[in-house]
Design a protein around this nucleic acid. Structure first.
Length: 581
RNA sequence: CCGUCCGUGGCGCAGCUGGAUAACGCAACAGAUUCCGAUUCUGGAGAGCGGGGGUUCAAAUCCCUUCGGGCGGGCCA
């Protein structure tokens, strides 16, 4: 919450509380505890700028109808020294408050004073948060899920940053485990096929059949030749992986960079295996009594852990029974650790070794079965499971001409993240993927994304910014020099369009904090479109170039504040705010 | 079967830490625009929030139930 907004709300709470106490002292209310009531902004501005629901909350305790209580409060309320000029009782017992122009003036001065920091707050108290997102498998191209995850994760991290958390962005590179073996095998087969002919060896069903594998094998041959055929299978595969994996990772890094995502850490899964941390984690699980051996594999007692947690949460035996919990393998019969085992070690690394207060993972909704288990596993290694939060995001459907598209026309293959970034402006991709909350499936309209019109919400926001820049330029050309107005001049901004616009500016910090609390950057894109709408509405209704110099300067200043706020919001999302379009 | 997410005007969606006539965009209709860049703005029409029950002074928001849809229930990740 902006400091001023918070102050105004506190003033209401204090005035109302005082008024209730005065009533109690005067005997018009019976002695009663004053409950925590709240202030809110009424949907309809006719009902004031703020309203308080204290009368409803006290109805039972005071044994009076809310309306009567509200009237009693109103009679004794003292608004002296506050941002409010008046209040009234309305409806069944609301107490509605009306702001003085002073408040709006102070908001604008605050916007100007904070500059490119306007919107930031210390709500998060510098708590350290690790946001891990995309984390695509380095065995093949990135897909639409990764694209949404990238925009969502990066903007979520930005929102948390603005809300006062200390944020790091992280990409977990799955450069170990089963899928790497599969990658090696697939490369090996393609390598041999290219040299010895397609029929020389067959690619097993459950390996990677994508074209990218063949391309990688070919490029190995082009660069380093066919000498691997003379090596043992193991050595050959090792060489191919050592060639192909860095190449794929480099491709992912390049794509992320193009996507304007700047990771603090690219965390290698392999380091967990090699550095002994994986073994250490499994040992802790064993020490804590959460493992057992069966059929040559090492198992994790998921049933036991989850049952304890669910009971603690008040679930009945029956409910738990219905979940059909299962134990999980940590180390396979063949001696290889599972992904799950590595993931426990990984999250322990974040929360314990590296000391993040919180880890947030952005996962596709198809992983949701993994969430509770992972939190449980944290408890099993002695970490509070609530320190791990998972944002699950639903699928994206690419749409063109109103119809879903699965395959790229050019390549005939599934559309990859790289394809998308080639075809659609980054600004549009980042904005549009953040138009919906993570939990709802969304359509991504390819036609809309490239469209330069008001239908396209990114364009609409950028246009508003450019338009203001253009207005200011025009004023300068006409010889009008803008200056910082006095607060008394800013109080001339009293029209509905103006106060509504300024209120929206005032709400930014609160919106960001709310977005941070709900892990929902979509609230920011909504804020931006609303800001654009409210600006256009203002500009259409009120003239900037007027004879009254004070009023003109006040309106120019308002334009500047809107421009700067829009720029802040867009820059938070790493979207350009062009001065002309 | 179990779990989970979603279900708001013709379409797309906001609101969901409960509050006063359910917001906005598209499409359609009627208008405005003596300051920038009509890629703008205004107005009327259109839903009572999938259905049912409950809690409450107050429910789209909370609880239960039911229907419909997405996703999941691997020694895959």
């Amino acid at each position: 919450m902006s400091k001023l907004v918070k102050l105004a709300e506190e003033q209401i709470i204090k005035s109302v509380t005082d008024a209730i106490n005065t009533n109690i002292a005067a005997g018009s209310f019976i002695e009663a505890e004053i409950p925590a009531f709240k202030t809110e902004i009424p949907a309809d501005r006719k009902n004031g700028d703020y309203s308080a629901n204290a009368a409803f909350m006290m109805s039972k305790a005071l044994r009076m109808p809310p309306r009567k209580i509200a009237e009693g409060i109103l009679e004794k309320i003292n608004l002296e020294g506050t941002y409010f000029k008046s209040c009234e009782v309305a409806g069944p017992g609301f107490i509605n408050f009306f702001l003085k122009p002073e408040f709006y003036a102070d908001i604008l001065l605050d916007v100007e004073k904070c500059g490119d920091k306007y919107g930031r707050s210390d709500f998060g108290n510098g708590k350290k948060i690790n946001v891990e997102f995309v984390s695509a498998n380095p065995t093949g191209p990135m897909h639409m899920g990764n694209a949404r995850g990238g925009a969502l994760g990066d903007c979520l991290a930005a929102v948390l940053d603005w809300a006062g958390y200390e944020v790091e962005r992280e990409f977990y590179v799955n450069d170990a485990g089963n899928q790497i073996d599969k990658f090696a095998l697939s490369l090996d087969v393609r390598y041999q096929q290219i040299i010895n002919g397609e029929d020389s060896i067959e690619l097993p069903e459950d390996s990677y059949h994508g074209d990218d594998i063949r391309v990688l094998a070919q490029s190995y041959i082009d660069e380093l030749g066919t000498g691997l055929l003379e090596l043992s299978e193991a050595d050959r595969r090792k060489a191919l992986v050592e060639y192909g994996l860095p190449k794929n990772i480099a491709t992912m890094k390049a794509a992320m960079e193009k996507y304007r995502i700047d990771y603090n850490t690219w965390f290698s899964e392999l380091t967990l295996h090699n550095g002994g941390e994986l073994k250490e984690t499994i040992d802790i699980l064993t020490k804590n009594g959460y493992t057992y051996e069966k059929e040559g594999a090492l198992w994790y007692k998921n049933i036991e852990v989850m049952t304890a947690i669910l009971k603690r949460e008040g679930k009945s035996d029956e409910d738990i029974e219905k979940l059909e919990l299962k134990d999980d393998v940590l180390i396979r019969q063949n001696g290889n650790p599972t992904y799950f085992a590595a993931d426990i070690a990984y999250h322990r690394n974040k929360l314990e070794k590296r000391g993040f207060d919180k880890a947030i993972d952005v996962w596709g909704a198809d992983h949701h079965g993994h969430v509770a288990r992972m939190k449980g596993a944290m408890e099993a290694v002695g970490i509070d499971g609530d320190r791990l939060d998972v944002v699950l995001m639903q699928l994206v459907n690419l749409m063109k001409d109103g119809k879903p598209v699965k395959m790229s026309k050019r390549t005939g293959k599934a559309i990859t993240l790289v394809d998308l970034l080639d075809e659609v402006p980054i600004d549009a991709v980042r904005f549009l993927f953040n138009m919906r909350e993570a939990g709802s499936a969304m359509d991504f309209d390819l036609d809309l994304a490239v469209e330069q019109s008001n239908q396209n919400p990114v364009f609409y926001c950028q246009y508003a910014h450019a338009r203001i820049c253009s207005i200011l330029k025009k004023l300068a050309n006409e010889g009008i020099t803008s200056r910082k107005p006095l607060a008394s001049e800013l109080m001339l901004l009293t029209s509905d369009e103006e106060t509504d616009l300024i209120s929206h500016l005032a709400s930014l910090t609160g919106v960001i904090v709310n977005a941070a609390n709900t892990y929902d950057p979509a609230k920011i894109t909504h804020y931006a479109t609303d800001l654009a709408t409210k600006f256009h509405r203002f500009y259409n209704a009120q003239r900037v170039m007027v004879d009254d110099e004070s009023l003109m300067q006040a309106r120019i200043f308002l334009c500047v504040c809107v421009r700067d706020t829009m720029r802040n919001v867009l820059s938070m999302l790493k979207i350009n705010a062009p001065e002309s379009m």
